[in-house]
Design a binder for these strands. Structure first.
Lengths: 121, 121
DNA sequence: TCCTTTTTGATAATAACTCTCACTTGAGTG
DNA sequence: CACTCAAGTGAGAGTTATTATCAAAAAGGA
């Protein structure tokens, strides 16, 4: 994997945005500093970075795939109302071990969904 | 909401398939008994049924939105390898209550992901 | 049966993403 | 530093899931 300007800008955008950004959001951010970048380059690089373990694909939400630059073990909460993705830093090792013991599922991620405190108010 | 033949067949398909089907899977099943049904009708009715609480939208997986006719409280496990969706019937009320107490998140669903026992072997 | 309103089917439109391919660039090699 | 060439890029076409449009058909009450 070569160290191109585009790749640097994409990874930097993921960190600066820090909002579990989608390809479109990354593109909109990068295109301001590097107007000639193509969306294909953004999509391509995000996929490669997931492959390489530099980013995590946190799934499709509201029609767009979102990514996370925080690769240490953690989970997510997704608000069904405002669609915001929030990190959940608790350790659920005990719960996961119990499920794995019974069903054999090796769980690596948990996505909680519901309504956040802001939207509930 | 009128009781059309199409709507009956779609709901019946969801129950018969019993695999957390996608719109495409429902269409392929229904079209065999009712060859003139349109995909638009399937998409439209699945959305309406979610709105009406007759089905649950369990999110986009592998590019397609999947639905569940089992509306009683339960969670899901998604195998990242075979993409299979499995019901998880444990009650996590204690865990959820703790999170809600700290962060104010009112969690209604949990999606666990990882590797299932079959794919792991 | 008639009337009104909802629903349907066909098709066009949209949105997110992927593919293709000629041109460009990164980074080793001499 | 110039050379080489595989990897990467940009532009645009193609694909796939889903939604919008709208005339025709059907549901269900009067």
């Amino acid at each position: 994997m070569r160290n191109t300007i585009q790749r640097q800008l994409i990874l930097q955008a993921m960190k600066e945005l820090d909002i579990h950004a989608s390809a479109e959001q990354v593109y909109q951010h990068v295109v301001q500093q590097h107007p000639t970048i193509s969306k294909a380059t953004v999509y391509r690089n995000l996929s490669q970075m997931v492959e390489a373990g530099e980013l995590i694909n946190i799934g499709n939400l509201d029609g767009q795939t979102h990514f996370d630059h925080n690769c240490h073990a953690h989970h997510h909460f997704i608000c069904e109302t405002c669609k915001r993705i929030v990190d959940v830093e608790y350790d659920f090792a005990d719960v996961l071990a119990k499920i794995q013991g019974i069903d054999g599922f090796a769980i690596s991620n948990i996505a909680f969904s519901g309504v956040c405190s802001t939207c509930k108010a």
